[in-house]
Amino acid sequence: MANINVSLQVLPSVPEERVYPVVDKVIEMIKESGVKYEVGPMETTMEGDLDTLLEIVKKAQKICTQEGAKRVVSVVKIDYKEEGVTMDEKISKYR
């Protein structure tokens, strides 16, 4: 399967001072997964095959609840084309 892009924003229901530490744990898990990713101010965008990226999304929910979130609201965006899509084709002209 061709690479696609998935953007993930997690909003864990934790005290305000815990939001960034919980999100940092999610980003660390994404980093350790080995997929190409880019952290933005509102979301993290990843590149890889759909099944792998959706597993990462599921793991992100678990990390948030393991860190004390009673609820997690996540915003997921998927950019899919049969032939694949890359982050570079979208943003390379801005770099």
Results as ranks from 00 to 15, higher is better:
M1V: 12
M1R: 09
A2H: 11
N3T: 14
L8Y: 00
V10G: 00
V10A: 05
P12E: 02
V14W: 03
V14R: 00
P15C: 07
P15G: 08
E16W: 11
E17A: 12
E17F: 10
R18L: 11
V19D: 01
Y20M: 15
P21F: 07
P21S: 05
P21H: 06
I27D: 01
I27G: 02
K36D: 12
E38H: 06
E38L: 07
V39S: 05
G40H: 05
P41A: 09
E43S: 08
T44I: 01
D51N: 11
L54C: 04
L54F: 10
E55T: 09
I56V: 11
V57Q: 02
V57D: 02
V57F: 02
K58H: 07
K58D: 01
I63H: 05
C64V: 00
T65M: 12
T65W: 02
T65A: 04
T65Y: 05
T65H: 08
G68H: 04
G68S: 04
A69E: 03
K70F: 06
K70P: 08
V73C: 06
V75H: 09
V76N: 03
I78A: 09
I78H: 05
D79V: 08
K81R: 15
K81I: 09
K81W: 11
V85T: 14
T86S: 15
E89T: 11
E89K: 10
K90G: 13
S92M: 13
K93G: 15
K93V: 15
K93Q: 15
